[in-house]
Design a protein around this nucleic acid. Sequence first.
DNA 1: TAGGCTGAGTTTAGGCCTAAACTCAGAGAG
DNA 2: CTCTCTGAGTTTAGGCCTAAACTCAGCCTA
Lengths: 176, 176
Amino acid sequence: MAAEPPRDGADAIQDAWRRELPGVPVESIGVITRIWWAAKFFGDERRRLLADLGVDVATLDLLSTLRRSGPPYRMSPGELAEACMVTRGAITQRVERAARAGLVERTTAGSGYHARAVALTDAGNALLDRVVADLLVAEDRLVGHLSPERREQLAGLLRELLAGLGGPSLTGQVGD
Amino acid sequence: MAAEPPRDGADAIQDAWRRELPGVPVESIGVITRIWWAAKFFGDERRRLLADLGVDVATLDLLSTLRRSGPPYRMSPGELAEACMVTRGAITQRVERAARAGLVERTTAGSGYHARAVALTDAGNALLDRVVADLLVAEDRLVGHLSPERREQLAGLLRELLAGLGGPSLTGQVGD
DNA sequence: TAGGCTGAGTTTAGGCCTAAACTCAGAGAG
DNA sequence: CTCTCTGAGTTTAGGCCTAAACTCAGCCTA
């Protein structure tokens, strides 16, 4: 009686592995592969939108993280690496690119080699003001086909999933 | 009465944007950011596991896609690009690397420039036999903290989300 | 049958990432 | 006071990707 949900590509992949490698547990595909596809879809959309607006995803992630930290919009490379969930080396490179574009500045906010910090410039803040609202509006539209209740359910289950993984949701501060 | 779910990083990001840019719609973050984090977590885990097993994610994706297509385990570059959801150029490079490692071969399966095809070699099939089961077992463990009912709900909601996006779930054949 | 179109595949330039080696200031032991 | 250790940050080598330019066989037209 219950309406069968229409089968999709993930179901087909499960079937294919059952056929090719009988006995392997394929249940995780229903969750992990679909999450992977959704993330790729949202990532591609974001990359294209931001390219039109003249930024790249990595730079916007850096600037957004600084902005969300609140005044004085200043963080150390180590804090940025943790919040952005990339290596310290990646942060060095992101900061280098953003600094060359005038969006952040390295403020040796203490004395000497340690106690370095990265701070948003006025240009960086202006870029965020110009871009983030557009981005969030566009992404709101992308998930708009789900009813608010469905979105709520999905967000809740994902929160549970992440809590159980013990990874990103605990310390990460990345996002938009 | 209802137990409040513990707040996580995505909730904090929503709050931060409400504070920094009042008026922007932040609801999508609850879904999109959490999906992004989960995908990053699973991707990082997969990369590390496969590195230990001596493969990289992109090569395994290529080989898996060929394997799942069934005998004779042969596809054109264009079909592979669509199934793997990467550009044709990326497929050219993946095939080049895999061919150099002896895992696939280019069988000019027709006449001339067109009608090219890529086929799994015995070594490629052997590598899949050796690696895929381990991978699926490991990933099954990663989502094991969710009860089967929860996993089912999550998979169903993700299927709905993807169907509404009109993207990956319709044509993609990527996966493990 | 010459000219041009089309679409599949390849090449190239450039971006961003990770992992591992490297650098350097400050802290602690002797 | 000097040596070593430690940990934050940077640099380098290498991997994978996209976007756009390029190549080329087959086909269609005149």
